[in-house]
C-alpha cells in the first residue's frame, strides 16, 4: 500500500532502452545489469523501491529548448513562443522500471546569464546532468563545456551521469545536422557523456531519451544501494571478528595469569 497511485501505463520500463549513438554512450550493454534485475525480482531495492527520486538537472544556453524538451515529455505540449524560464522550474515524472516505482525530478534551469547565480544553487545533488544545445547553433555546442564545468562544481563527477542533447533537430537540414553531429559526438566523447539528438516540436526521440535517462539512473541507484548494503554487511562481519579477537585476547590473558 502506497501513497502513490500506479504509474501511467506508458511510463513502464521493462527492458533497457538502447543508446542513440554507439560512438557516444554511457554503456553499450543491451540489458540491465544482472545484479539489478535479480534485486528487482527479489524486491531488494531498498529505498529505491519505496520512493526514490533521482534529481536530474537540465542546463544549456538560453533558448536552446530545455523547457520545451521537458514540456514535450511531461505535458506533451509545445509552445512556439519563447518564454524565458525564471531561475528554475521542475517537473516530476514517475516511472516503473522492472516493476519498481521510480521518479525523476527534472529541474529546468534558466539559460539566461542573469539567472545563473540563482539556477546554480539548484545544481547540487544531481544524479544526471542533461546538457542541452541547439543543433543549429555551433556556439551553444561550444558553451556546453562551460555548462558542464559549472554543474560539476556542485556535484561528484564520478557518480553523476552526463547526457549531451542536441535540440531543435527539426530545424536542421540533414546535411547541416550531419556536420554538427560530428562535432557534438566529439564533445560528448570528451565529456564522457551520452549523445542524443531530439526535436521537441515533432517529439522525435524525446520519449526514448527520457526512458534511457530513467533506466540508467535507476540502474546506477540500485547498484549504489546494493553496494551500500554490501559494505554494511561487511562492516558487521568485521565487528564480529573484532569481538572474537577480543575474546581470544582476554582468554589468553587469563591463561597467562593462571600460569603465573
Amino acid at each position: 500500500m502506497s501513497v502513490l497511485p500506479p504509474v501511467r501505463r506508458d511510463r513502464i520500463v521493462g527492458e533497457l532502452p538502447q543508446c542513440f549513438k554507439k560512438e557516444a554512450s554511457l554503456h553499450l550493454r543491451t540489458s540491465f545489469h544482472p545484479k539489478v534485475v535479480s534485486a528487482c525480482q527479489e524486491q531488494r531495492t531498498g529505498t529505491v523501491g519505496r520512493f526514490k527520486i533521482s534529481k536530474i538537472i537540465v542546463v544549456g544556453d538560453l533558448s536552446v529548448g530545455k523547457t520545451c524538451l521537458i514540456n514535450r515529455f511531461c505535458k506533451n505540449t509545445f509552445d512556439m513562443n519563447y518564454k524565458a524560464t525564471i531561475g528554475v522550474d521542475f517537473e516530476m515524472e514517475r516511472f516503473e522500471v522492472l516493476g519498481v516505482p521510480f521518479s525523476l525530478q527534472l529541474w529546468d534551469t534558466a539559460g539566461q546569464e542573469r539567472f545563473k547565480c540563482i539556477a546554480s544553487t539548484y545544481y547540487r545533488g544531481a544524479q544526471a546532468i542533461i546538457i542541452t544545445f541547439d543543433v543549429n547553433n555551433v556556439v551553444s555546442l561550444e558553451h556546453t563545456r562551460q555548462w558542464l564545468q559549472d554543474a560539476l562544481k556542485e556535484n561528484d563527477p564520478s557518480s553523476v551521469q552526463l547526457f549531451l542533447v542536441g535540440a531543435q533537430k527539426d530545424l536542421s537540414s540533414p546535411s547541416q545536422y550531419a556536420l554538427i553531429e560530428k562535432d557534438a559526438l566529439k564533445v560528448a566523447r570528451e565529456m564522457g557523456a551520452e549523445y542524443w539528438a531530439i526535436s521537441s516540436l515533432t517529439g522525435e526521440n524525446v520519449k526514448e531519451f527520457f526512458f534511457r535517462v530513467a533506466s540508467l539512473t535507476f540502474e546506477s541507484s540500485v547498484l549504489a544501494e546494493l553496494e551500500k548494503r554490501r559494505a554494511r554487511n561487511i562492516g558487521d562481519v568485521v565487528r564480529i571478528n573484532n569481538n572474537d579477537n577480543n575474546l581470544y585476547l582476554t582468554t589468553k590473558k587469563r591463561k597467562s595469569k593462571c600460569c603465573q
Partner: peptide, 15 residues
C-alpha cells in the same frame, strides 16, 4: 500517515 510520508517525499524533492 500519508501526510508524514508526503513530508519525506517533499523533503527529498526540495533537497
Amino acid at each position: 500517515a500519508i501526510k508524514k510520508q508526503r513530508k519525506k517525499i517533499k523533503a527529498k524533492m526540495l533537497g
